[in-house]
Each structure stands twice: as structure tokens, then as C-alpha cells.
Design a protein around this nucleic acid. Sequence first.
DNA 1: TTGTATGTACAAGCAACTTGTACTTTATTC
DNA 2: GAATAAAGTACAAGTTGCTTGTACATACAA
Lengths: 69, 69
Amino acid sequence: MKKENKIGENIRTYRKSMGLTQEQLATFLQGKKSLVSNYENGYSTPDIYTLIALADIFDVTIDELVGRK
Amino acid sequence: MKKENKIGENIRTYRKSMGLTQEQLATFLQGKKSLVSNYENGYSTPDIYTLIALADIFDVTIDELVGRK
DNA sequence: TTGTATGTACAAGCAACTTGTACTTTATTC
DNA sequence: GAATAAAGTACAAGTTGCTTGTACATACAA
């Protein structure tokens, strides 16, 4: 059952906007593709250090990445 | 042995600037005072939802809170 | 259809967080 | 200085929840 999760949705949106596959993004994070799938589908949440890495990759703020307005 | 940790240092600085005790801040987070002590001394790191709550309390961005420039 | 790339499901193992308790430090008052 | 209370720390135990491997599903091209 898919969980609602703004952070995961944002990760997916930003990843696609950069033309990356889950596996490519996972490699940047030094993880496996199931990791990114879990993030995007709301089964797990990145810790702050991973969120910082993602914000760097996507060139956005952490606040933007997590949908904090 | 105390661990270096910028996030923890920032939490301590912002907490003190608001004149709060660890116990008072913990109450805002619906946790115990040892929780805040662990954050500030680098023994644990808040998850993103806790960081959002802290950013709201301190009225700063998450990027500022975690020292991302 | 067959093959390939991409994404998902899920259990198991493991890493790391939260708490309770006791202890220590700091500040204040006598 | 001693005594007290408030504030902060140490740490083991229990718990939560993240990461991975594997198998399976989906999409799409040849």
C-alpha cells in the first residue's frame, strides 16, 4: 500500500527533472536503487545528511526539498 | 566522549537564544530532556520531521538550522 | 514475443534513535 | 563553605525504522 509523502514525491519530481533513473540517483547517494524507490514511495525517509546530499544534487534548499513553505 | 556536531551546536545556540531549557524544548518536541541533550552533544540526530519542528520553533530555515550555506 | 531497462514489494538484518535512571554540574541562598 | 534546587549529562536497554538483496512487475523497443 503506497504511503502519501511529500518528500518522496518531491524527490521523484526533482530526479525526473534531471533525467536520472532511481539507480543513477542511488549511486550518487552511495546506495541501492531500492533505497530511492522506498524514499519516493514513502516507505522510508532520508536522514538529514542524505537530504543535504539530495539538495546539493538537485540544487535546491532543504526547505524546498521537503516542501516547507 | 563528546562528539563534534554542527547541528547539535546550532540547536543549543538557538535554544539558548530563546531562553529555553532542554526540558522546555523537549516538551515542544513531545520528548524527554535527554533527547535534547543527545541532540546537542551529538549522540543522536533529529529526523527531518523533528528538524522541521525545531526550525518552526526557532523561526529559521532548515538549511540555517543544519548549517548548510 | 523476447529482451532490456526501470521501478516495486517485502522480509531480514542492522543501525541508530528515545527513554528512564542515576549521576554531575551550575547557580543561588544562607 | 554548605545546602538545595534546577539544569544538563551518561549510558544501557528497548524500540523504531532504515538499507539491502531478491524476486517480481511494468514499460517499451526491436
